[in-house]
Amino acid sequence: MSLSLDDVAKIARLARLELTDAEAAQTLGQLNNIFGLIEQMQAVNTDGVEPMSHAVDVAQRLREDRVTETNQREAFQSVAPEAEGGLYLVPRVIE
């Protein structure tokens, strides 16, 4: 499988990345190399091997349901580009 420039444009749009034509062409080459590697791996026979979602075979550690965090709004909002009345401000979004 190999990608087209349109695929690259779509992936970039979904990731909110702006690519120049040159960058898109370069990215296309890099992504296709990665796909080549994946194709090599997919050629290996994995019949009877249970798929894994993680590389380590350990279970998730769980936390007791306790409130352990305190209000840090002031510290967080001091580094935010814009905040007012306790709210973070962003360019207006309406669906």
Binding site: E84, G85, Y88, L89, V90, R92, I94
Partner: peptide, 8 residues
Amino acid sequence: HGRSGIDL
């Protein structure tokens, strides 16, 4: 003035 507020 063209801003939305975010409460997390």
